[in-house]
Design a binder for these strands. Structure first.
Lengths: 216, 216
DNA sequence: ATCGTTACGTAACGCTGTCACGTAATAGCG
DNA sequence: CGCTATTACGTGACAGCGTTACGTAACGAT
């Protein structure tokens, strides 16, 4: 009943090769033939392990979401929830910078030509938001933020982070308003807008900066 | 000395056809053959009027920047500069929604596969920012905003607008935190953060909303 | 040992961007 | 008016793309 078994290494190998190709030679270089050559099979492997090129890209995007989720999940919950929010912001930004080619496909409307995400794919992206919502809720619970719609506050943070990251990746943020400058202005502005005390916000910013140095 | 003259209509026709094709059939449908068929020439026209497919896309992107600039330039300077800023925000968002396929290519990192913007292209994009900077400066000049770095404030507004627009286009903003809800929260938050009086900010918001209804 | 099932290499199809080549059309000049 | 230089552009080719039909080889179950 059972035929030749699938090589369990081939699937991740193809995904890795695709990510590597995307990162090193750009989206135009992503082709079944190049991938097959890299992992030492033929182009049909893409069709047995995935439905086609689109599904391989989709799997790669899922991997990208997993990387982002891991990065943000690794941010520990401290007794300073505002510093946690800031640390999450940096985690988001650092991940996007590190895997910028993936980030573009994950969130860049068209991404590769002809490829588009489904609603199911987007659910993976929204997991990012859940982590942020939790941190914002803890800010509200400890009285640092006004108890006003944590979901909306998290959305605003996400929008600001995403806008910053994409304009940065697009090369639009140059001296003197670099991504770092804008990041700090944007995030601290939102925190003060959410109701935090300026003095304590400043302390949390410093704490988050120290945590970032420690973990990288 | 002079050969057969170039048909002056063919160039804009090709750009329009490309925009139409991009909007109606997606980025994958953009091909020299389809374009040639649409305007009634052969594929070589793309090479005589542009350097190739890339340059045609580039011309289309420039057209997109022009549309955005026109839309924002059409926002009149009133004696309520904060309302002007809000109106500019809506103009940005409305344009992006109307020409979303173009917007994705203009600001979406990879956009079409293999195509990438040059620094010269980005300068067109930054013109958008100049208009915003002017409005923010007028807010500061009239005492509505604190006189603190209008360029940075404009950057923050741009980042928020761009983040909102791209997440919206990507389908990430759903009930109850729709793009409209987030837009208002984001923009009013920034205005208050810039130092405006809450009461006057509310009035400006209402005024900008009325102006928007009037002009569309 | 045989058979059913499945992976996968080969080769093809239609599509793409790009370019060499030949032809047709035009403006300037005598 | 006629000639010629110059250029647009249609035709056809090329390499490379995603995808698939087909044949073969490898395996588990019986």
């Amino acid at each position: 009943m059972s035929p030749r078994p699938v090589d369990p290494n081939l699937r991740p190998q193809l995904i890795d090769a695709a990510a590597k190709l995307l990162g090193e030679e750009g989206p135009a270089a992503l082709s079944t033939r190049k991938l097959a050559a890299m992992v030492g099979t033929s182009t049909t492997a893409v069709y047995t392990y995935f439905g086609g090129m689109d599904d391989l890209v989709r799997a790669m995007v899922h991997e990208g979401f997993r990387l982002l989720g891991d990065r943000m999940g690794a941010v520990e919950e401290s007794d300073d929830p505002v510093a946690d929010v800031l640390a999450l912001g940096w985690a988001y930004r650092d991940n996007a910078r590190e895997h910028w080619h993936l980030y573009n496909v994950m969130f860049g409307g068209s991404g590769l030509s002809g490829f588009s995400l489904t609603d199911a794919d987007r659910q993976h992206g929204r997991y990012t938001l859940d982590i942020l919502v939790g941190a914002v809720k803890r800010c509200a619970a400890t009285g640092r933020f006004r108890p006003f719609d944590p979901e909306l506050v998290a959305h605003q943070l996400w929008i600001a982070l995403h806008g910053l990251v994409t304009l940065d990746l697009g090369g639009y943020l140059v001296e003197p308003n670099t991504a770092d400058v804008c990041f700090e202005a944007q995030v601290s502005g939102m925190i003060l807008g959410a109701g935090d005390d300026p003095q304590r916000a400043q302390e949390s910013l410093a704490r988050a900066a120290q945590r970032r140095l420690r973990t990288q």
